[in-house]
Amino acid sequence: MEMNREDLTVRDKLIYHAMTGVCTPNFMKHLYLSWTKDPFYSIEEIVNSCVPMSNETKQQKLKMALETAYRKMSFEELNELYRIKDIQILTILDNSYPEGWLNSYLPPVVVFCAGNIRLLEQPCLSVVGSRSPTPYGKAVLNEMIPPLVAEGITLVSGLAKGIDQMVHSSSIANGGATIGIIGSGLDVTYPRENAALQRQMMAEQLVMSEYPLGSKPERFHFPMRNRLIANLSLATLVIEATESSGSLITANLALQENRDVYAVPGNITSRLSVGTNQLIKAGAACVLSATDVLEEMKTQ
């Protein structure tokens, strides 16, 4: 069982497998570790070493999925498709790969990028919050964004509803830089109301995804996407979050990777402040202004 081109470099083989859409982030990491150890390992050997022999059914399913993908389109055809759509490809083997991802437990092996990839060279701050922010949350964000972008901080979020959308839009409106990391292919918009914003960011800012073209916004993509948001930046700022929100998941992922987390306190009677107040109680930095955020970032 071999892919259709034996003469590809390790980098190109990794890109090809990411483009197929059948390899999970964990399996992509296994491919990377295997081929950097021995570039001549066969796919069959790699699958066998990744999936326990006791789970022969899973092994066969993965092998069949890969074989089907190889027959569907060659590396050259896929590569041309991405070139036509002006999508850049960043891999863990590249010098420009972000240090934050490199030093994380499950780094993305291949990331698809549309826009200004040089934004990754600037100091980044992830900003997350509720999809249905209160007037308080909106006011906090509108007050904090301008001073942060004025200091050259690139703001990272997930192009979702609510706080995410406001982070990106406000950054652009204030002449700043922003990066969106999404849980679908770059040719898919979710939610649909962010279609114009995503197109603008792909042209003028930066939108990134671990998932190849055509990938739908599956529910299980978003926790994986959140680890990329958390690990790309120096720190994560949480503005409003319920007790079991995706924003809190992102914050906890940041904490697990020894990243700083800042939280804006809120009304103790508001469900959207439960998550942020719990973070502060657990040791997250309590920030009341953009000045607080900048001072915290300077200590790193």
Rank of each mutant, 00 (worst) to 15 (best):
L33W: 00
W35Q: 08
T36C: 11
Y41P: 13
I43Q: 13
E44L: 11
E45D: 15
E45F: 05
V47I: 12
V47T: 06
N48F: 07
S49L: 00
C50L: 00
C50S: 12
P52F: 01
P52V: 02
N55G: 06
E56Q: 12
T57G: 12
T57C: 11
K58Q: 12
K63H: 10
K63V: 12
A65C: 04
L66I: 10
E67T: 15
T68N: 12
A69R: 07
Y70F: 15
R71C: 15
K72P: 08
M73K: 14
S74C: 02
S74I: 02
F75W: 11
E76S: 14
E77D: 14
N79D: 12
E80N: 12
L81K: 13
Y82V: 01
Y82P: 02
D86V: 10
I87W: 01
T91Y: 02
T91H: 03
I92V: 15
I92G: 14
D94T: 11
N95M: 10
N95S: 14
S96K: 14
E99K: 12
G100V: 03
G100F: 03
W101S: 10
L102G: 14
L102E: 14
L102W: 08
L102F: 07
N103V: 01
S104H: 07
P108L: 02
V110T: 08
V111H: 04
V111D: 05
V111F: 07
C113T: 06
A114W: 00
A114H: 01
G115S: 03
G115F: 00
N116M: 08
N116R: 10
L120Q: 13
E121D: 15
Q122S: 15
P123M: 04
L125H: 00
S126M: 04
S126K: 01
V128S: 03
V128A: 04
V128H: 00
S132L: 08
S132T: 12
Y136M: 05
Y136S: 08
Y136N: 09
G137Y: 01
K138T: 07
A139R: 04
V140P: 00
V140C: 07
L141I: 04
L141T: 05
M144C: 14
P146I: 11
V149R: 01
V149D: 02
G152A: 06
G152P: 08
G152C: 06
I153P: 11
T154Q: 09
L155T: 09
V156W: 04
S157I: 02
L159Y: 05
A160P: 01
I163S: 10
M166W: 06
V167L: 08
V167C: 09
H168G: 07
H168I: 00
S169M: 10
S169W: 05
S170Q: 10
S171L: 06
S171E: 04
I172Y: 13
I172W: 14
A173M: 10
N174D: 06
G176Q: 05
A177I: 03
A177R: 11
I179S: 08
